[in-house]
Amino acid sequence: MRVEDLSGDDATVYRAVAEVEVGTGAPHLQDIARAAGLDLERARTAVHRLLHTEPKILHEVPDTGPTDLGPVYELAPRT
């Protein structure tokens, strides 16, 4: 799947990750949902789909910060 082919919640979540990542670094799921204007479950479902595309569009990264909010997500490098 190509980024250009995304639509609906998947496209919204992709754009939200890109915007937050540029501003403050890789976001947590809660940050993605807020930036995308989606409830947590819809954001989680879209993130899950983006994590399992071929080629990879989104990566899950362990959070090394002081909080316990779960992993953070970042865009995969585009080729």
Rank of each mutant, 00 (worst) to 15 (best):
residue 31 D to G: 09
residue 65 G to Y: 04
residue 35 A to L: 02
residue 60 E to M: 11
residue 39 D to C: 05
residue 67 T to D: 12
residue 36 A to W: 06
residue 58 L to H: 11
residue 64 T to Y: 05
residue 61 V to Q: 15
residue 20 V to N: 09
residue 75 L to N: 11
residue 43 A to E: 01
residue 46 A to I: 02
residue 79 T to V: 12
residue 19 E to K: 10
residue 60 E to H: 12
residue 21 E to K: 04
residue 45 T to A: 14
residue 37 G to L: 06
residue 15 R to E: 12
residue 75 L to W: 05
residue 50 L to N: 10
residue 42 R to V: 00
residue 26 A to D: 15
residue 40 L to N: 06
residue 21 E to N: 08
residue 63 D to L: 01
residue 60 E to D: 14
residue 34 R to E: 13
residue 58 L to I: 13
residue 38 L to W: 01
residue 75 L to A: 09
residue 29 L to W: 02
residue 54 E to L: 14
residue 67 T to P: 03
residue 4 E to L: 06
residue 50 L to P: 07
residue 50 L to V: 15
residue 2 R to Y: 07
residue 34 R to M: 04
residue 79 T to H: 09
residue 17 V to M: 05
residue 72 V to Y: 04
residue 1 M to Y: 03
residue 48 H to Y: 12
residue 38 L to D: 06
residue 50 L to G: 14
residue 12 T to Q: 10
residue 74 E to Y: 06
residue 27 P to S: 09
residue 11 A to N: 02
residue 52 H to G: 10
residue 71 P to A: 13
residue 60 E to I: 12
residue 2 R to H: 05
residue 47 V to D: 06
residue 30 Q to M: 00
residue 12 T to H: 05
residue 18 A to H: 02
residue 54 E to V: 11
residue 29 L to K: 10
residue 56 K to E: 13
residue 71 P to M: 00
residue 50 L to W: 08
residue 41 E to C: 01
residue 65 G to L: 02
residue 10 D to Y: 00
residue 4 E to V: 04
residue 63 D to G: 04
residue 50 L to I: 12
residue 33 A to V: 01
residue 23 G to S: 13
residue 42 R to Q: 09
residue 63 D to Q: 04
residue 73 Y to C: 10
residue 63 D to W: 07
residue 9 D to K: 11
residue 20 V to C: 03
residue 44 R to E: 10
residue 68 D to K: 12
residue 43 A to D: 02
residue 37 G to T: 04
residue 9 D to L: 00
residue 44 R to D: 03
residue 37 G to H: 00
residue 22 V to E: 15
residue 13 V to W: 05
residue 10 D to Q: 15
residue 63 D to V: 00
residue 51 L to H: 12
residue 76 A to W: 09
residue 62 P to C: 12
residue 26 A to T: 06
residue 37 G to Y: 04
residue 56 K to R: 11
residue 57 I to Q: 13
residue 14 Y to W: 14
residue 67 T to F: 07
residue 56 K to T: 13
residue 1 M to I: 11
residue 69 L to C: 11
residue 13 V to M: 05
residue 53 T to F: 03
residue 18 A to V: 07
residue 24 T to V: 11
residue 40 L to T: 05
residue 73 Y to I: 09
residue 46 A to S: 09
residue 57 I to D: 06
residue 54 E to M: 03
residue 56 K to Q: 11
residue 41 E to Y: 04
